[in-house]
């Protein structure tokens, strides 16, 4: 038991101040284990890449933090308080495929959605809000497309619209789900410039990333994830070949098989006494 409490002391550090503090997070949905016992503390004002192989639970980690998928166990704090209490501090850029791009709205309309929280119930979107939305579009180099229906935009342009919407939220912590996936060079450059700008402004950005080549140039902090956190910390310390091998290597097959079997049990979620003796 002594080991357990020691460990909890370590985890307690940063609980009050860190922008993101996660303890013991487990997520299993559709009967597949996705995250297992994740403990994570992320520092403020850093660009954090979350990397790992396909199916490692990168997106799920973000969704669990944002309360979009139910968690089996675990405690998540944003600046020391629950996410529900700190919603205004959090901006979110979902995966591009998560919405229907044929939806009858223009780029400005989508960006203005980031302001809905400020506008509040029932009040319509005013001219001032729309102007602000266009302003955010300008920041991502998209002001020329402000009135385009979103289906007429290219993939990279759609991604930039989503980024502008997150900017409109004016948050402290940003979560971005694969913003670099399938975008053109111009968009990639725009996103990187934007990330740097956000960092200068003291914001924390957590970015799900899939391109190992660019991790060292784009980010200063990295989380290596494969169902569990393999390693987390500053890029120069953590982004090592050994850690990458652990994350991407085939070693996890046995564990993932067992976890799968565990989650296939009809009664997952409630059964099982915790703790016990060694």
């Amino acid at each position: 038991m002594s080991n357990l409490s020691e460990f909890e002391n370590i985890a307690d550090a940063g609980q009050e101040t860190a922008p993101i503090w996660i303890n013991d997070l487990t997520v299993a949905y559709h009967r597949k284990p996705v995250l297992w016992d994740v403990n994570l503390v992320l520092p403020e004002g850093k660009l954090v890449a979350v990397i790992g192989p396909n199916g490692a639970g990168k997106s799920t980690l973000i969704k669990a933090i944002l309360g979009l998928v139910p968690k089996a166990t675990g405690d998540i704090r944003i600046y020391g308080r629950s996410y529900e209490a700190q919603r205004r501090l959090v901006g979110y850029v979902p995966q591009r495929e998560s919405v229907d791009w044929d939806f009858p709205v223009s780029a400005t309309d989508v960006v203005a959605m980031g302001l809905y929280g400020k506008i509040g119930w029932l009040k319509p979107v005013s001219r001032r809000h729309r102007e602000q939305a266009v302003e955010e579009l300008r920041k991502v180099g998209m002001e020329a497309y402000a009135d385009r229906q979103i289906s007429q935009l290219s993939g990279g342009q759609q991604q930039r619209v989503f980024l502008a919407r997150a900017l409109a939220q004016d948050a402290q912590v940003y979560f971005m789900d694969e913003p670099f996936a399938g975008v053109d060079v111009a968009t990639e450059k725009a996103i990187v410039a934007l990330l740097k700008e956000l960092k200068t402004a003291g914001k924390t950005c957590v970015v799900v990333h899939h391109d190992l080549q660019t991790v060292t140039t784009y980010f200063d902090h990295v989380v290596l994830l494969n169902m569990r956190v393999v390693a987390a910390g500053p890029v120069e310390e953590v982004f090592t070949e050994e850690n990458l091998k652990k994350t991407y290597g085939g070693k996890l097959t046995l564990l993932s098989q067992a976890l799968h079997k565990y989650a296939q049990q009809p009664g997952i979620g409630t059964g099982g006494a915790k703790g016990g003796h060694r």
Binding site: L66, P94, S98, V99, Y116, G117
Partner: peptide
Amino acid sequence: FDADFALTQGW
């Protein structure tokens, strides 16, 4: 349009 995003916004 985007129920997940609405959820993160507290709607």
